[in-house]
């Protein structure tokens, strides 16, 4: 019996090492985790997003530049080619993507070794976390941020999920002399009374652009494009002249509906 077991173990070891050599595809192993990187590459149509310096145009024919772009990515889940699913533990699953901070555009999570066919995530902060005690709001969720770049509404307890600001000739002159447009999109559904919910869940199929082979010693990178032109050009054509400032309002639903078309998978680096 003992011999048999040793033989089996040896055989398994040999088989495993063989399979590693011949086919680097890892099998789903919940106990063996490695890093998966998801890159949020912000673009404007067929151009790269460059803060402040570049000028773009939306479908309403308005030219604009972008001075700030930030959004929350949370609740990351992955699904293997065989259908096994894994959710990143919630406490390690909140990320603030900022165009001004290159490293923030690579979301790194620990997931089991496997070959992944799809990933899903939330743009925003789920309603449960949005109502949790302050001690559970650490890291990206710390409401300590500034008015200039903060992602939290103090007056109406809740996170701003998506914040884009810029300059456009189509926007009216503000008290600071600048023609600014501001889109601060949030709304988790309300706590003491139900209200707007702009939490959006995205599922991205990786098979066409390349599955992610997550294994130790490597760092698979899923390269996503986030096209902010979709914020303007979608089922609603958002005009800066008509809507220079959109914050907590019914119109914000149309903007969040527009940006559900924002993400696409470009390729995967394994």
């Amino acid at each position: 019996m003992k011999h048999l077991l040793i033989f089996a173990a040896l055989a398994a070891g040999t088989l495993m090492s063989c399979s590693k050599k011949d086919d680097p595809t890892p099998t789903f192993n919940i106990n063996q985790k490695a890093t998966l990187s998801i890159q949020f590459d912000n673009i404007v149509g067929d151009r790269n997003l460059q803060l402040n310096t570049a000028t773009y145009a939306n479908a309403s024919g308005e030219s604009f530049s972008v001075t700030l772009l930030q959004y929350f990515i949370s609740n990351i889940k992955v699904k293997t080619v065989n259908g096994d699913e894994y959710s990143v533990p919630q406490d390690s699953s909140y990320f603030l993507i900022s165009e001004a901070n290159a490293s923030s555009q690579f979301v790194k999570v620990r997931v089991p070794e496997a070959e992944y066919a799809s990933i899903s995530f939330v743009l925003g902060v789920d309603s449960l976390r949005s109502t949790m005690g302050i001690e559970r709001r650490t890291g990206a969720l710390d409401p300590a941020g500034t008015m200039e770049t903060g992602m939290y509404w103090g007056w109406n307890s809740g996170y701003i999920f998506f914040r884009m600001e810029g300059i456009s000739a189509a926007a009216p002159v503000g008290p600071d002399g600048l023609r600014k447009f501001r889109y601060h999109i949030g709304g988790f559904g309300g706590y003491s009374a139900p209200t707007i919910n702009n939490i959006k869940t995205f599922t991205v199929d990786l098979r066409a652009g390349g599955t992610a082979k997550v294994r130790q010693g490597r760092e698979a990178n899923v390269h996503l494009m986030a096209d902010i032109l979709k914020v303007f050009n979608g089922s609603t054509s958002v005009s800066i002249a008509n809507n220079p400032t959109v914050m907590f309002s019914d119109f914000s639903r149309l903007i969040s509906a527009n940006y559900t078309q924002m993400f696409r998978h470009d390729h995967t680096e394994n």
Binding site: G154, W155, S157, Y191
Partner: peptide, 28 residues
Amino acid sequence: GGVFDIDLQPIAPITNPVEMDETIENVL
């Protein structure tokens, strides 16, 4: 009733530009 948790309440006056006009980060 915009604030639903007493622990989140002070953020509103501290960050309001016409009240204390500060950030929590800077207070700390």
